[in-house]
Design a protein around this nucleic acid. Sequence first.
DNA 1: ATTTAATTTGTTATAATATAACACTATGTA
DNA 2: TACATAGTGTTATATTATAACAAATTAAAT
Lengths: 135, 135
Amino acid sequence: MTKMHKENNLTKNQQIVLDLIEKSTEPVKAYSILSNVKKKGMKAPPQVYRALEKLIKVGKIHKVESRNAFIACKNTNCEVSNATAFSICQACEKVTEIVNSKLSKYLKSFQDSTGMKYKKYNLEFFGLCQKCKSK
Amino acid sequence: MTKMHKENNLTKNQQIVLDLIEKSTEPVKAYSILSNVKKKGMKAPPQVYRALEKLIKVGKIHKVESRNAFIACKNTNCEVSNATAFSICQACEKVTEIVNSKLSKYLKSFQDSTGMKYKKYNLEFFGLCQKCKSK
DNA sequence: ATTTAATTTGTTATAATATAACACTATGTA
DNA sequence: TACATAGTGTTATATTATAACAAATTAAAT
């Protein structure tokens, strides 16, 4: 096969997986991705997990750890997923990435008592979204 | 059988699992717990997972989401695990719970742009611990 | 242009993590 | 006692993720 990726340096499989995640309004699970990309020729888990791994590495997607699911990055120019925060509704499972410079500034510069300096953090907030709260 | 739990209201299985996690200096995985408590009569995954669920609910342990592992709560009087923060070394995998009232105060009162109010959060910091940094 | 090194692919198999379901037992309280 | 609630033991299975390896593709270096 000839050239198989766009200017962003994603390969065909990576682009297929990214397209699917970006289209989704909710976090997508790996095996749900798999069943949805079978028609495009991706047949086995490793193909999906490899694409996910790469997409995370380049900051195109994030993993929502508490849900084992994947979500597209909201920041148009996000290049590395080293500072992530999510809002998760415990009722409807809606997940939204929190983009808040005050918060990220605070956390990026956080120093614990041991003096350990952090390269990366992931924060997940849980509660009820507006919709679910008013039910 | 007669009375099977102590004044803290934990049952035998729950206490067995808690003892094991409290003894450990590192986060423990569910199946590692299982293999270690077989000699005490716990034979199958659901027994372990149920104990873990209860221990989390009462705040005795926390789940380190990015590692699928469990760690004892450091706060002697922790009753609910609704505000957790961890420091994770990416090299040696050492995990330490961060107890920092400024941080928890900041996060507990955090309001995002949607006005959603949170009941709970979990924060995981990643980096290199002192030991690994100096290698 | 050809070789090389690094990366990605396709594939099979399997490991690791977690829950469903059900009959039963124990406990706390009325 | 009777009832409600929670926990138990058990089998089976669902879900999430990785190991391993040969082949193909790509980027870059000769």
